[in-house]
Write a protein that binds this DNA or RNA. Structure first.
Ligand code: FES
Ligand code: FES
Lengths: 140, 140
DNA sequence: GACAAATGATACTAAAGCAGTATCATATAT
DNA sequence: ATATATGATACTGCTTTAGTATCATTTGTC
């Protein structure tokens, strides 16, 4: 099933760490040291997050990243959308005649209902709440 | 996200059709005509379902497939397991030091909770109930 | 028995997505 | 100037998905 891929997972963990450093710029080197994420891969992810407006970057020596948005406004669904593309349903397969309209197809409906429920739950999870839980356990 | 892949989707639709033919043997030719699923692909899927004990096959002229199990006992989760492998969680990525035990890791937990919920819901869906809904709409 | 019509078993292929690397350009604190 | 950052981009290898292609075997019908 795999709700989240490596991309997303790495991104969340990086964001949680950055969140914990509140307002201080965090470099890739520091993140690599703490999270053991492969450096070039992490760099790519952070650049994407920067472009998407979730991180803000500063170049040059002493450069790095900090959050560009409030951590309670960065949701798991955002990251999934960014790194795993749109969460789209399966296409109908009865291509012609026997195809009911998707909206009433029973199979489509049960899957859609479950996916919508998942979405709702993922939307309830944000970087701030995760960071809080991690800190309570003394990690980060 | 994609809860179910093409394999699974085709398989369900084929099973629904076969279910509607209650006790009569159904050939691939008939299924292809009705569902428009690519013939060689469908053949492969049905052979797998046969091996897994969900269908029973008979060879030779007039051969084909029929259900080997009660349709209310064939669950969506079974098909997903067969065609999409075990529904497994993400591995931890903090490979060494900062890794909490998986069982208490907050990130793992939220994902695991959602996945378990999905599983429970998928387990509630079976071929019989789907076939019934389809028939009510006059399909199949 | 010959033949047609079915499945069984296998092996192969093409495309997409996932995970990660490598390189060079650019900015900036010291 | 230079060391230390990120920006941009292109490339590689692996796995999964979605099929196709072939040949062997079984069986009903004439
Ligand atoms: S039959 Fe077309 S969407 Fe279900
Ligand atoms: S930190 Fe290891 S499982 Fe979450």
């Amino acid at each position: 099933m795999k709700l989240i891929t490596r991309n997303t997972d790495y991104a969340i963990r990086a964001l949680i760490y950055i969140c914990g450093r509140k307002n201080k710029i965090t470099s890739v080197s520091e993140l690599v040291a703490k999270t053991k994420i492969p450096r070039p891969f992490l760099r790519k992810l952070l650049q994407i997050l920067n472009k998407k407006g979730i991180l803000r970057s500063s170049k040059g020596q002493k450069g790095g990243f900090m959050l560009a948005a409030e951590p309670q406004e960065i949701f798991l669904t955002d990251l999934i959308r960014i790194f795993q593309g749109s969460l789209k349903l399966n296409e109908c397969l009865f291509k012609k005649e026997p195809c009911v309209k998707k909206s009433i197809c029973p199979l489509n409906k049960v899957i859609r209902d479950i996916e919508e429920d998942v979405l709702k739950k993922l939307k309830a999870i944000n970087v701030a709440s995760l960071a809080f839980k991690f800190r309570k356990l003394g990690i980060n």
